[in-house]
Design a protein around this nucleic acid. Structure first.
Lengths: 212, 212
DNA sequence: TTGTCGGCCGATCGCCGACAA
DNA sequence: TTGTCGGCGATCGGCCGACAA
């Protein structure tokens, strides 16, 4: 999975340490995140934190839900915290270098309901008739792009409702459009956190706007 | 899962050994059924058959596909085949005792396609307006039952197409209706074997017919 | 700039009897 | 007895501009 698309889906809050960097691993915190009841009792005493080196890193997406996650292989390197230099904070893929052009939009009722129309936030990029975008699995989606209404606006119509239904999107979920460096258009999704209502407005980075 | 409904779904070919009976377990045959490549090489030599006692038995249904299967716990009792008495062949639940009243019908194109109508094989049971039947998960389905057409016949209409869609039934799959001993009506399904075309006609046991 | 509404039109669905196998 | 067909009306999906926030 393309790292740029992965980061666009994960959002700006997510930072991934690069390979070979040193990180601190919290076993109990990890266990709590699994939502399963992990019993540390019968095991030999587990230290609360373990100094590790990132040995491998994979950007992945759930085949069912399209939600992105990372597989990080850690190798313990002893628990000596002396001169532990924090070189580990990785880029989030879009901030540190301004290259990838993308925007995120949380779906409104009108986007998610069965009107079948997606209202594109203001941007002036190619007024093409057909928008082809690849999702995290590499599958292509072909949307009809049209500029209409009073006042005029950019809309995605045909095939949009298929996308919403197959991805099981509801209002509040977010959709991510990203122009990869090779020029290909990619589309990812970010599901609304449960119990958060409409996802906080996260906005564009790139997609310079102009009139048209 | 009710054993009667389980056997009605499994069909007459399926016999389950009762608890405490002695059976012969074929590890290689079992491995082949899993469709995974099980490598017996590195293991200690596995005998081709193992005499076992049935320690426990569970009638289950797949949460996704509704297909029935059994979980049978076997305990090896040594491989001495001397005086191995075959008391193991269990009943199929409907033949040996004539109690449960059920019928099976393989879905026709008209049953499975989006006409939304199920043509009930001739029977004269309660001309109720609403047929309520529980599936293998205990969920209730409420079908409208109507007697119409020329010539007259019994049909299930409203909610039938929901059932077909949610269970992902296609022509050739079979539906099982069973009147449990407590009077409750149950409905199960049996998917057509792949590559068998329309499932062989399997017919009723019970549901005495009369004119109406 | 963009979220929602009502309206329109065509496609599909659900239900029906006719007919024939 | 029952599988399939054509037809019908209701509903739904997809697309539209109007309007207002």
């Amino acid at each position: 999975l393309d790292s740029e698309l992965w980061h666009a889906c994960a959002g700006g809050m997510v930072q991934i340490p690069p390979v070979n960097s040193k990180v601190v691993y919290f076993p109990q915190g990890h266990a709590e995140h699994t939502l399963i009841n992990v019993d540390f009792g019968p095991l030999p005493r587990i230290p609360p934190l373990i100094l590790c080196r990132v040995a491998a890193l994979k950007y992945l997406a759930d085949p069912e839900t399209d939600e992105v996650y990372a597989k990080i292989r850690l190798i313990p390197i002893g628990n000596n915290m002396d001169n532990f230099d924090d070189e580990g904070l990785g880029s989030n893929g879009s901030e540190s270098n301004g290259k990838p052009i993308s925007f995120v939009k949380a779906l409104t009722q009108s986007d998610a309901n069965n009107g079948g129309v997606f209202s594109v936030p203001k941007y002036s990029d190619p007024p093409v008739q057909t928008v082809i975008a690849k999702d995290v699995h590499g599958e292509s989606w072909k949307f009809r792009h049209i500029y209409r209404g009073t006042p005029r606006r950019h809309l995605l119509t045909t095939a949009w409702s298929n996308f919403v239904n197959q991805k099981k999107l509801i209002a509040g979920d977010s959709v991510v459009f990203l122009r990869a460096e090779n020029g290909n258009l990619c589309v990812g999704i970010r599901r609304a956190k449960k119990g958060c209502g409409i996802a906080g407005r996260e906005s564009l980075s790139g997609w310079k706007s102009s009139s048209g």
